[in-house]
C-alpha cells in the first residue's frame, strides 16, 4: 500500500520536473552528461556549461593599442580574510606575453603551465620567443581536445593572451570550446557585454598604453556591479614600449591614478 502510493507520487513529480527543465535547457534529456555526445540540434552542452563557469567570474579585459597591450581584471574578493594581491588572475607566460582569465582559477593555472611549456619548447627548438598567435593556437588546440571525450571536462575558463612579438602587439581569446580569435579589444566574464560596448567606443589602434590603462580601469570600475558583488581588486598589467616589451604589472602610481580617474568617471556616468 505505502510503496504503491510513493511510486505514484514520484512519477507525478518526475513528469512535472522533466517538463519544466526541457523547456529551459534540455537538462535531463541525457545529452548534457558527456562532452562526447551531441544533442540532436548539434550542441555540446558540457561546453556550454563551461561557458557558464566563465560567466560567473569577474570580468577580464584586454586592450590592443598602438604600441602595446593592456590587460585588466576585476578580481572579486569573496572573503575579507584573503591577503590583498593574492590569487592573481593575470599570469606571466613568457617575458613578453601575459594572460588574463575568467572562470575557474585552477583551470587557468593549468593553461598557464601549458602556455609556459609551449614557450620553453619554442625557445629550445628555434632559439626564438614564441608569438602570441602560435601560443594561442597551441592552447586552443589543447582546449578543443577537452571537448571530445567523455572522460574529461572542458576547461572552465576563457583566456585572454596579450603580448608583443615580431608582428607587434597581439591579443587573442581562447574559449572553452577551443575557439581562438584575435581582437583589438577583448572582454570575458560577467560584465563582458557592457565592457564590449565600451571598448567599441574607443579608437583602440590610436590609443597610447597610458591612455589604455586609464580606459581599462574605467571599464572595469564601470562593469563592476556594486549591488550584487562585494569587494573587488583591480589587477592590471601591460606589455609594450612603456615596459620595454616585458609583461609587467602597471606601476603602482599609475595604477592609483587610473583607479582615481575611474572612480571619478563613475560619478559622472551615473
Amino acid at each position: 500500500m505505502i510503496s504503491h502510493g510513493l511510486t505514484r507520487l514520484s512519477l507525478r513529480v518526475r513528469g512535472k520536473l522533466t517538463c519544466i527543465l526541457t523547456t529551459m535547457t534540455s537538462i535531463g534529456t541525457g545529452y548534457d552528461l558527456s562532452a562526447s555526445t551531441y544533442s540532436p540540434d548539434g550542441r555540446i552542452f558540457q561546453v556550454e556549461y563551461a561557458n557558464k563557469a566563465v560567466e560567473n567570474s569577474g570580468t577580464a579585459i584586454g586592450l590592443r593599442v598602438k604600441d602595446g597591450v593592456v590587460l585588466a581584471v576585476e578580481k572579486l574578493i569573496h572573503s575579507k580574510l584573503l591577503v590583498p594581491g593574492a590569487n592573481r588572475r593575470i599570469q606571466t607566460v613568457d617575458r613578453h606575453i601575459g594572460m588574463a582569465s575568467a572562470g575557474l582559477l585552477a583551470d587557468s593555472r593549468k593553461i598557464s603551465q601549458l602556455a609556459r611549456d609551449s614557450g620553453a619548447q619554442t625557445r629550445k627548438q628555434w632559439k626564438e620567443p614564441l608569438t602570441v598567435k602560435a601560443l594561442s593556437d597551441t592552447v586552443s588546440w589543447n582546449a578543443q581536445t577537452y571537448t571530445l571525450y567523455s572522460s574529461v571536462r572542458p576547461f572552465g575558463v576563457s583566456t585572454i593572451f596579450g603580448g608583443v612579438d615580431k608582428s607587434g602587439p597581439s591579443l587573442y581569446i581562447v574559449e572553452p570550446s577551443g575557439v581562438c580569435l584575435g581582437y583589438h579589444g577583448a572582454a570575458v566574464g560577467k560584465g563582458r557585454q557592457l565592457a564590449k560596448t565600451e571598448l567599441e567606443k574607443l579608437k583602440l589602434s590610436e590609443l597610447s598604453m597610458r591612455e589604455a590603462v586609464m580606459e581599462a580601469a574605467r571599464i572595469i570600475y564601470l562593469v563592476h556591479d556594486d549591488n550584487k558583488e562585494k569587494e573587488f581588486e583591480l589587477e592590471m598589467t601591460w606589455v609594450g614600449v612603456e615596459s620595454n616589451d616585458l609583461h609587467l604589472p602597471v606601476p603602482a602610481d599609475l595604477l592609483e591614478e587610473a583607479k582615481k580617474k575611474a572612480k571619478d568617471a563613475l560619478e559622472t556616468f551615473e
Binding site: T92, V93, D94, R95, R116, G119, A120, R123, K127
Partner: peptide
C-alpha cells in the same frame, strides 16, 4: 646560456 635563459623565464613567471 640556454639553461640560464630558461631559469630566468621560470623565475619571472613565478611573479
Amino acid at each position: 646560456q640556454y639553461i640560464l635563459e630558461e631559469l630566468s623565464i621560470d623565475e619571472i613567471s613565478a611573479q
